[in-house]
Simulated scan of single mutants.
Amino acid sequence: MLKVVIVVLLLAVIASLFTSLVFLIRDGGKTNRVVNSLAVRVGLSLTLLALILIALWHGDLSMHPTPYH
Results as ranks from 00 to 15, higher is better:
1 M>W: 14
2 L>I: 15
3 K>L: 13
3 K>D: 09
3 K>H: 13
4 V>G: 12
4 V>C: 12
5 V>N: 12
7 V>Q: 06
7 V>I: 03
7 V>E: 12
7 V>K: 12
7 V>D: 04
7 V>R: 06
8 V>Q: 12
8 V>S: 12
8 V>R: 14
8 V>E: 15
9 L>V: 06
10 L>S: 07
10 L>M: 14
10 L>G: 10
10 L>V: 03
10 L>Y: 08
11 L>I: 07
11 L>V: 01
13 V>K: 06
13 V>E: 06
14 I>C: 03
14 I>A: 12
14 I>W: 03
14 I>G: 00
15 A>G: 02
15 A>S: 10
15 A>K: 00
15 A>Q: 02
16 S>W: 00
17 L>E: 04
17 L>C: 01
18 F>N: 05
19 T>C: 06
19 T>K: 03
19 T>I: 03
20 S>F: 01
21 L>T: 04
21 L>R: 02
23 F>A: 06
23 F>D: 02
23 F>I: 01
23 F>E: 06
23 F>K: 00
23 F>S: 06
25 I>L: 05
25 I>K: 05
25 I>V: 13
25 I>Q: 02
26 R>F: 14
26 R>Y: 14
27 D>N: 09
28 G>C: 04
28 G>F: 01
28 G>W: 01
28 G>Y: 03
31 T>R: 10
32 N>V: 10
33 R>P: 00
33 R>L: 14
33 R>M: 11
34 V>H: 01
35 V>A: 12
35 V>R: 14
35 V>G: 08
35 V>M: 12
36 N>W: 10
36 N>L: 14
36 N>S: 15
36 N>Y: 15
37 S>G: 12
37 S>A: 15
38 L>P: 04
39 A>C: 07
39 A>S: 10
39 A>R: 11
39 A>T: 12
40 V>M: 03
40 V>G: 01
40 V>I: 13
40 V>R: 02
40 V>E: 08
41 R>F: 13
41 R>Y: 05
41 R>P: 02
42 V>G: 03
42 V>Q: 10
42 V>Y: 07
42 V>M: 08
43 G>M: 10
43 G>E: 11
44 L>P: 01
44 L>E: 02
45 S>A: 15
45 S>N: 14
45 S>C: 14
46 L>T: 08
46 L>Q: 10
47 T>I: 09
47 T>N: 07
47 T>R: 01
47 T>V: 13
48 L>S: 01
48 L>W: 05
48 L>A: 06
48 L>M: 10
48 L>Y: 06
48 L>G: 03
49 L>F: 11
49 L>D: 08
49 L>C: 10
50 A>S: 14
50 A>W: 13
50 A>N: 09
51 L>C: 03
53 L>I: 10
53 L>P: 00
53 L>D: 04
55 A>I: 09
55 A>E: 09
55 A>G: 10
56 L>Q: 09
57 W>Q: 07
57 W>F: 13
59 G>I: 05
60 D>E: 15
63 M>V: 09
63 M>L: 13
63 M>G: 00
63 M>N: 06
64 H>K: 07
65 P>S: 05
65 P>F: 05
65 P>N: 07
66 T>D: 04
66 T>S: 13
68 Y>P: 00
68 Y>F: 07
68 Y>Q: 02
69 H>R: 00
69 H>F: 01
